[in-house]
Amino acid sequence: MTTFDANTGGRATGRKRIAVVTAGLSKPSSTRLLADRLAAATGRLAEADTQVIELRELAAEIAQNMVTGFPGPRLREAIDAVTSADGLIAVTPVFTGSYSGLFKSFFDVIDKDALAGTPVLIGATGGTARHSLVLEHAMRPLFAYLRAVVVPTAVYAASEDWASGGETALAARVERAAAELAALVAARPGRQGSEAAPEAVVPFEEQLAALAAEG
């Protein structure tokens, strides 16, 4: 279900964690390649662990969840990884001028409040540059609705961007977007896995005794 960046095996104490959602359907996939580049750059700049979630491996469980309302174990693990992360990278291929149905379905099964305040870097891949506006007219509004914080720079990679002529420009966009996400992740208070001491719980009997004394 999930894969981890080569230099991590999970969450290390005191380190931030970035979830990477990729909706590519083929293997190998240009969508996964872009997601890996964004993850590598952000992980390096933020000194964070990265966890990659391949939606193609969860397609059956996502469809079942849409019908039954209950996630299977692998999908539950993926949802938990995304909603507990300090930052999110989300990359989709362009289908019919928008994000893929698999990509949308995954975020449909996540609670609408679970990503509030989460820094997000959005990316997409397609055959031609004319589809690049999918980032602004489809993906950015989606995460705005979920009340996530989307970084200013979105990254689109067309077929020509993987050739030698477009590689330099693509690399520059990747670095700029990664720097923006890294800055937001670094500034965000730690979430799950932080070393903050848990708040002390006062027994109910003691609370009643304190109220009686005040009276």
Rank of each mutant, 00 (worst) to 15 (best):
V149P: 10
A148G: 14
R191L: 09
A177S: 05
V201R: 14
R191F: 01
V151D: 00
V185Q: 00
P198G: 07
E199Y: 15
T168F: 12
V185C: 06
A179G: 07
W162G: 05
T168H: 15
G165Y: 06
Y145T: 14
L170F: 05
A157E: 04
A200G: 10
D161C: 07
Y156N: 02
R188N: 01
V174M: 02
E175F: 02
V155M: 04
L146V: 14
A200T: 13
V151S: 01
G193Q: 06
A169I: 08
V185I: 09
A154N: 06
A171M: 00
A200R: 12
V174S: 01
V174I: 10
Q192C: 06
V149I: 13
A186W: 00
A200Y: 07
A182F: 02
V185E: 01
V149W: 11
A179S: 07
A196R: 13
G165H: 10
G193N: 05
D161M: 04
V150D: 02
R147A: 15
A163L: 14
A200C: 08
L184N: 07
L184E: 05
S194H: 13
A158S: 10
V201L: 12
Y145G: 12
G193V: 08
A163K: 14
T168P: 02
L184W: 06
A169F: 12
A157C: 08
V202F: 05
S164C: 04
A154P: 06
V201Q: 12
P152Y: 03
